[in-house]
Design a protein around this nucleic acid. Structure first.
Lengths: 145, 145
DNA sequence: CTAGTTGCAAAACGTTTGCATCTTA
DNA sequence: TAAGATGCAAACGTTTTGCAACTAG
C-alpha cells in the first residue's frame, strides 16, 4: 500500500469507527502516515501550525489516542520520556535511534517473532511479543565528530 | 560477582569517582543492586523510608543519575513513562514485562550482539547496541484470569 | 574548614482532562 | 439539531532544580 492509499485507508477506518472527519484530524493523520521521521506530538503540532492555526496540541494527542486504539499507530520511546509515533507501519518493528541527534529510522531486518516464541516457551508467559530497538551514531553525526 | 561484592564495588567506585559516602547513598545503592524486581525511583524511596526517614525522593533521583553516569545502572521504560532501574547487571539485556501486573524479570536468552553487528554493517551506524524487550502475561496473571 | 550532599518546595516537562463553544453529518 | 470534536487552561504524575542547612573528609 502506498502512502496516499494508506492515508485514505486510515481516514476511512476512522469514519467507520464512528468518528467524524475534521480538518484537524485529516491533517494529523496525514502527517503521521506520511512522515518517515517518527515525529513526537509536539513535532506534529509544530509542523502543522503554520497551515492550521486552528489546531491545538490537545487535539493531536486525542487523535493519536484514537489511532492507537484503532491499531493504526504505534508509540515508541526515546530517551525515556519522549514518545514518538509511527503511523506508517502500525505494528512492532525495529527502530534505530541516533544517540547524538535523536533521529529515528526503521531497521531493515526480520522481526523477532522467533525470539518471542522462544521466550514464551522458556518462561511460561503467554501472548509474548518482542520489541527490538537499536542505538547507535548515524553517519551524519559520525562525520561531524 | 555476587551481590554483596557488587554493592561494595559500586560504593568503592563512587568514592573514586569523587563522591562522598552518605547513609542515603549507601542505602539507595544497596537496594538498586540487591533488588531483582527492577524498582522505580518511587519504589526505591518507599522501600527505604521506614528505615531511613532522612531520605528524600530527590536524593534517590540524584543517586540514580550518578550511577547512570558511572555506567553502573541502566534504565528501562514500562508503559512509556515509568522508569525502572537495574543496578544488578548494568548493561543492556533483555527484560520480560507482564502486561497485566507490570512485573519485570530478566530473560534467559543470549544477548543480541550479533543483531547489533548486523545492523551496524547494514546501516553504516557506529557504536550500535541493541535493546531487546518482551511483553507477555506472566503465569500468575494467567491463572488469575 | 569547606566542598559536596541533603531535604524541601517549586519548577519543569510531556500528557491528560473538564468544560463551554463550535461543527460535522 | 444533536452527537461529537474542538481549544483553552488547569490538573496530572514524574523528574529536575534552586537554595539554605548540614555533614563527610
Amino acid at each position: 500500500m502506498d502512502t496516499e492509499a494508506r492515508v485514505q485507508h486510515v481516514l476511512a477506518r476512522m469514519r467507520e469507527h464512528g468518528g467524524r472527519m475534521t480538518p484537524q484530524r485529516a491533517a494529523v493523520v496525514r502527517v503521521l502516515v506520511e512522515s518517515t521521521a517518527h515525529p513526537s506530538a509536539e513535532q506534529v503540532y509544530e509542523e502543522l501550525l503554520p497551515q492550521y492555526p486552528m489546531l491545538s496540541l490537545a487535539t493531536v494527542y486525542k487523535t493519536v489516542a484514537l489511532l492507537k486504539e484503532m491499531g493504526e499507530l504505534i508509540e515508541l520511546m526515546v530517551d525515556g520520556v519522549q514518545v514518538h509515533f509511527d503511523g506508517r507501519q502500525p505494528y512492532a518493528h525495529p527502530h534505530l535511534v541516533c544517540k547524538r541527534c535523536g533521529s529515528i529510522i526503521d531497521v531493515p531486518i526480520d522481526q523477532p517473532h522467533a525470539l518471542a516464541e522462544q521466550v514464551a516457551q522458556t518462561t511460561g508467559y503467554a501472548e509474548v511479543s518482542a520489541s527490538l530497538d537499536f542505538w547507535g551514531v548515524c553517519p551524519r553525526c559520525q562525520s561531524r565528530e
